[in-house]
Simulated assay, not measured.
Amino acid sequence: MDKKTRKVELYGQTFIIDIKGSHNNTWQGTILWVQKQKKESFRSTLELIRLLDSAVETVKEEEQKN
């Protein structure tokens, strides 16, 4: 699999997902949360989904505080 980069926007937040490859039929790579300048590595598609879910929950909690 060739390296692929995708831009994803959720709840007003931008994420740059860099898929470096796949192993055992799942993706590995990094995700950058643009607004927070946080970069995390992921070792599976499920881990990527969990990182996105965690970021969205953080945004929702911050919105509720305001």
Results as ranks from 00 to 15, higher is better:
Thr14His: 15
Glu63Ile: 04
Ile19Asp: 02
Gly29Leu: 06
Glu47Pro: 09
Ser41Tyr: 14
Gln35Pro: 11
Phe15Lys: 01
Gly29Pro: 02
His23Thr: 13
Asp53Phe: 07
Leu10Thr: 05
Glu63Asn: 02
Gly21Lys: 13
Lys4Tyr: 03
Val59Arg: 00
Lys36Asp: 14
Lys7Ala: 11
Ile31Ser: 09
Leu48His: 01
Glu9Ser: 13
Trp33Lys: 08
Arg6Cys: 13
Lys20Met: 06
Glu63Met: 08
Met1Thr: 14
Thr14Met: 08
Lys7Asp: 07
Ile17Arg: 13
Ser44Trp: 10
Asn25Ser: 11
Asn24Gly: 06
Thr5Gly: 06
Lys65Met: 04
Glu61Tyr: 02
Lys65Arg: 10
Lys3Pro: 00
Lys60Asp: 05
Val56Asp: 13
Lys4Met: 06
Lys3Thr: 15
Tyr11Cys: 08
Thr26Pro: 06
Glu63Gln: 09
Asn24Gln: 12
Val59Asn: 01
Lys38Cys: 12
Arg6Phe: 08
Arg50Lys: 11
Val59Cys: 02
Ser22Lys: 10
Thr5His: 13
Ala55Cys: 04
Thr5Arg: 15
Leu32Ile: 12
Val56Tyr: 05
Ile17Asn: 01
Gln64Asn: 09
Asp18His: 09
His23Arg: 15
Thr45Glu: 02
Asp18Gln: 13
Lys7His: 10
Thr30Gly: 08
Glu57Leu: 06
Trp27Thr: 04
Gln13Val: 13
Thr58Gln: 04
Leu51Tyr: 00
Ile17Trp: 06
Val56Asn: 01
Glu61Arg: 12
Thr58Ile: 07
Lys4Pro: 03
Arg6Leu: 14
Trp33Ile: 08
Glu57Thr: 01
Thr58Met: 03
Gln37Ala: 07
Lys20Gln: 15
Gln64His: 03
Val59Glu: 00
Trp27Ala: 05
Ile16Cys: 02
Asn66Tyr: 00
Met1Asn: 14
Ile17Glu: 11
Lys36Gln: 00
Glu47Asn: 03
Lys36Ile: 06
His23Gln: 14
Phe42His: 05
Leu51Met: 14
Ile49His: 02
Ile19Cys: 12
Thr5Ser: 09
Trp27Tyr: 12
Lys3Ser: 03
Thr5Glu: 10
Met1His: 09
Ser44Cys: 09
Phe42Ser: 00
Gly29Lys: 05
Met1Phe: 06
Gln13Thr: 07
Glu63Pro: 06
Gln35Trp: 08
Arg50Val: 05
Ile17Ala: 05
Phe15Leu: 02
Glu9Pro: 00
Leu51Val: 01
Lys20His: 15
Thr14Phe: 13
Phe42Leu: 09
Lys7Gly: 14
Thr30Ser: 13
Lys65Gly: 03
Ile49Asp: 10
Glu40His: 15
Arg43Lys: 10
Thr30Glu: 11
Asn66Met: 01
Ser54Asn: 14
Asp53Asn: 15
Leu46Pro: 00
Arg43Asp: 05
Lys36Trp: 12
Asp53Ile: 04
Met1Asp: 09
Thr26Ile: 07
Gln64Thr: 03
Met1Lys: 07
Glu63Val: 10
Gly21Glu: 05
Lys39Pro: 06
Lys60Pro: 01
Glu40Arg: 12
Asp18Met: 10
Trp33Gly: 03
Gln28Thr: 15
Phe42Lys: 01
Ile16Ser: 14
